[in-house]
């Protein structure tokens, strides 16, 4: 680790502190927009232990979202290493990456991103709707459980447009829970919510973390960051 880390007293010590679950080493990424290249990541490293809750903070434009996208396989880095559970993700095939996105990894975003024409329950079931095989009764029950977990048991039949922002974000969390992911990536999950609603969402995230999920969260809110095991700070494409 070449980045400075603000480490909290390890309330939830990583079970296997020696072997990280997810590790990024010296990741770079640049974008070219209107002919001018921007170096969004200039060699960032981070390792996440199993069951660890890491917060990434930093100023706007420092590269947090870009880094989270790389970690969650949504964006291929220009260079650097990314390993999950011993698997080199920079060399993974498309099918392997898809399997990971479908299974172990779950992502939630600032703008909850639900499919507007599917109900809350159907949005929760979305991971099971990848193929022609119909959703099973067991999967349906599991989705209802997850909706109940986020406190939306009675609103499963509603369309996203009929839900508040906080409720939509909770559906997105239910969708992440339903597939039994091992790592949850959250990019400013409370960013579009008022503080009260944001607090309930954070409450949920820390509960999920207590259940054993690793969480990597980008946030601007120092208070929410303090709920995590560890806070890393980014400035200008580097770990501060």
């Amino acid at each position: 680790m070449n980045a400075t880390e603000t480490t909290r007293p390890a309330a939830f010590a990583a079970p296997m502190a020696g072997t990280p679950l997810l590790e990024a080493v010296d990741v770079t990424k640049s974008f070219t927009q209107d002919g001018t290249p921007t170096q969004a990541l200039k060699g960032v490293s981070l390792s996440v232990a199993p069951g660890e809750f890491v917060s990434i903070v930093g100023r706007s434009g420092s590269g947090k979202s870009t880094f989270l996208s790389v970690l969650s396989t949504l964006l291929r880095p220009d260079s650097g290493q990314l390993t999950y559970n011993g698997q080199d993700l920079t060399r993974a095939t498309e099918a392997e990456v898809n399997a990971l996105r479908h299974g172990d990894f779950a992502v939630i975003f600032q703008f909850h991103y639900l499919l507007p024409y599917l109900t809350a329950l159907e949005n929760t079931l979305l991971p099971f709707m990848r193929g022609l095989r119909p959703v099973s009764g067991a999967q349906r029950r599991r989705a209802l459980e997850c909706l109940e977990r986020v406190g939306l048991a009675d609103k499963g039949h509603r369309l996203p447009g009929q839900l508040s922002g906080g409720e939509q974000q909770r559906v997105a969390i239910a969708r992440a829970l339903v597939k039994d992911a091992r790592v949850l990536f959250a990019d400013e999950p409370t960013g579009s919510l008022d503080s009260a609603t944001g607090a309930t969402v954070m409450e949920l995230l820390s509960q999920i973390h207590k259940d054993g999920l690793s969480v990597v969260m980008v946030t601007h809110n120092e208070q929410y960051a303090s709920l995590s095991d560890r806070v890393v700070r980014m400035t200008d494409g580097l770990m501060a």
């Binding site: 990971l100 479908h102 299974g103 991103y113 499919l115 979305l126 991971p127 990848r130 969708r175």
Partner: peptide
Amino acid sequence: ILRSLGFS
């Protein structure tokens, strides 16, 4: 979203 959920 679909791609992030592992849709090929």
